[in-house]
Structure formats: C-alpha cells, structure tokens
Design a protein around this nucleic acid. Sequence first.
DNA 1: AGTTAGTTCAAACGTTTGTTTGAAACATAC
DNA 2: GTATGTTTCAAACAAACGTTTGAACTAACT
Lengths: 209, 209
Amino acid sequence: MVKRSTKDRILDASEVLFARDGSGGASLRAITQMAKVNLAAVHYHFGRKDLLLEAVLARRLLPLNAERIRSLEAYQQKAGRKKVRLENVIEAMVGPALRLSRDETKGGRIFMRLLGRLVLEPDARVQKLLTGQFETVLKKFEPALKAALPHLEPQDFFWRLHFLVGSMAHTMADSERIRLISGGICDPDDTEGTIQCLVTFLCGGLRAK
Amino acid sequence: MVKRSTKDRILDASEVLFARDGSGGASLRAITQMAKVNLAAVHYHFGRKDLLLEAVLARRLLPLNAERIRSLEAYQQKAGRKKVRLENVIEAMVGPALRLSRDETKGGRIFMRLLGRLVLEPDARVQKLLTGQFETVLKKFEPALKAALPHLEPQDFFWRLHFLVGSMAHTMADSERIRLISGGICDPDDTEGTIQCLVTFLCGGLRAK
DNA sequence: AGTTAGTTCAAACGTTTGTTTGAAACATAC
DNA sequence: GTATGTTTCAAACAAACGTTTGAACTAACT
C-alpha cells in the first residue's frame, strides 16, 4: 500500500464528505481531519473551497465521458455502414456511468451521490460545469440517437432524453433504496444485470408510440 | 391581499431557501429576513431547525399523496370490475405530482427542487420521512400496477418502478434544463403535455420485453 | 381596567465556519 | 553544506451559525 499524496487524500475525503453532507454542509475541518492533513493544505493546493469541489468533479467526470464516447465509437466501428442499434447507443451512454457508479475504487456510489446532489444545486459555477460536461457527450450521441429513433418528433426526442437522464441519475445515485423497497429482490450490486434492465426499460420508453 | 401569518411566512421563506441553498446551507437568519420575521420566531413556532424542515415537507406532501390515491380510486371506480389501464395507473401516480410541481401557488418548482435534493440527503430523519411517505403510496398502487403488468417478473417490476421514480423526480425537480438542452423546443410550462409525454414514455418502458 | 396567554422582539450566548499568516520541515539542486 | 523552492504545520482572524433569554407587546376574557 503506497501512501497517497496530500492532494489525493484531500480529494478522497472531500468526495466522501461532500457526498454525505453536501457541498455546503461539509466543513474543511472535517475534510482535513479525515484526510489526516493540515487545515491550511486545502488552500495551498486548491485555493478555495469551491475550486476543491471542481477538482473532485473533474477527477471522475473527464474519464467517464471519454469512456462513453470511446464505447459509442466502438459500436459505430462494429456496425460499419449500418446505423448502430438503439440498445447499443443506450448502453454506451448509461453503461460506463453505471459501472463507474459501482466501482468503489473510483469513488463509486459515493461519487454518484455527490453528482446527484450537485445536479440540483443552483450554484451557477457548478451548473456551468455540469451542463458543459453533459453537452459534450450529447453532441456526440445526438446523431446516433436520432438515427436509431427516426420516427420521433424533435419535441418527444428531447423529452425522452430528459426522462432517460432521470432514470439513469436516480439509479446511479440511489443504489440502496431499491434493495429496501423491493424487499431484497433486486440487487444493485449486480452491475451488469442492472445495466441490462435499465437499457431494456429505456429502449422501451424511447420507442413508445 | 390578506397578510399571511408569521408561521406561514416562515414556511414560505424556508421552502424557497431550503430549495436554493440546501437544508444545511440555508441559514435561519436568511429565512427570517426573507419572511420579515424575528429570528427567534422560528424556535417559538417550530422548536428546532430540522422540525421546521419537516413542517415544510408535510405541508405539501400530505395533500399530494392524498390526491394521488384519490385519483387512482377514481380510475378504479370508473373501470368497475375490469382492471385499470396501465396508462391510468401511471397518470394517477405522476399526474398529481407533476401538476403540483407546476403550481406556483403551492410551492411549485421550488418545492420540487427541495424534494429532489432531500432524496439524496443521507440524514436518517429526512430519509425516514420520505420513505414513509412513498411507501404509503406504493402500498396503494402496487396491486393495480401488478395487475396491469402481469407478465413482469418481480425483479423487473421493482427495477422499473425505480426507473419510473427517477424519470418522474427528475422531471419534477429540473424543469428549466430541458428548455435549454432542447433549444427551446420543449416547454416545461405545458404541464398536461409534459404529463402525457411522460406517461407514454413510462408505459413504453414498463411494458418493454 | 386588570389579568392572562400567546406572540414578537433585540440582544447575547458559545460554536463553528472559511480563510490567512508566518514559521518550521522537507526535498532538490548546486 | 548551503541555498532554493515546495509543502506542512499550529495558531489566529473575523464572520456567520443555531439557539437561548427575558422583557415588551398584543388581543381576548373577567
């Protein structure tokens, strides 16, 4: 076990505590205490509290979106001249996200909870960051999605995209409630099963007349 | 214009500021200032800050869930001996919620944003309150839903219910992003249109093979 | 008018907050 | 080994926080 750097230890602790207590609720003292780091180290490495939050986000989101685009391009390559099946487009969109949300070595549930909370945070800085990230992905996916759903009116197209994001975000962020509500029947730790279940649901909804 | 009571003014302001800044981020000083009320009035009327939050929630959630159940029972009555159509069950579930989320005289968007934030708040007290509210509704809806979806395995049933909640919550809580992302094509202020769109999507997803 | 219960008020309590400071400790180069 | 730039540290800062207090006000009933 290599000793992690001060910077990484701060990021790890921030992720946990921002997710648990909110970006406003988590105090730098709690963070530095958990990270076993001096209080002033935060300001030395990140400047201000909100810049620390940005760093926590960027660490996970940049690789995630790169992976989504890589996955879509792999499906496109495999399809050759034909258009990619809707199931595959959706899998490329939600699969990497859900796998990340279950990968505890990369923040996993904790990071997803944080993300879910930030989506509704009206802070302009956070919103710019999130919307920017999402639009990059959307730009890449929009053509493939429209090709797979040629019968959809533009209005329905965007609404259903919106509903898709909702289901995905809720499934990523809230992985334990389903176990409780289903009385143990559903197992959120079965990542690939969950993905398949979600893809089926979403494709059904997207194709609905 | 009748002057609202101190208690109501506190609830109104709390709703706005809890939604904007989170339950931890909103200070009692900001709330009482917006409500044009003395700081100590909060403790006089509600005791503690978290009891104030509970009161804000109860004011909207109790009538909402009553309305959902009333609506489902109306459909059941109309169906007589036959089982209620899936479209109607879903409408009874998401319709009242979405209408509330667009009714600015009853908190509207603001309250929904608050609700969305609280879903991911790990505070045990808040979770108990929310899960309790949801289970009351679920108990009432479960038979009708299962009857309308007889082919579904229990596991798929609960997962899809989970996805439904995600789409619904996201649509209620985040009403402006869709306008932005769709480039103005989608209008979240068209409440009934949104409901119909969402019901179609959800039924498609729920029925998917 | 006098009494009482309900409500509002300004002021203060002790904590905790994000941020700053300047010195100490560390590593790397010459 | 001394000098240089980077990182950590304990201590302090003003500001904001939730909560408490006791007196002042209001309205209703005797």
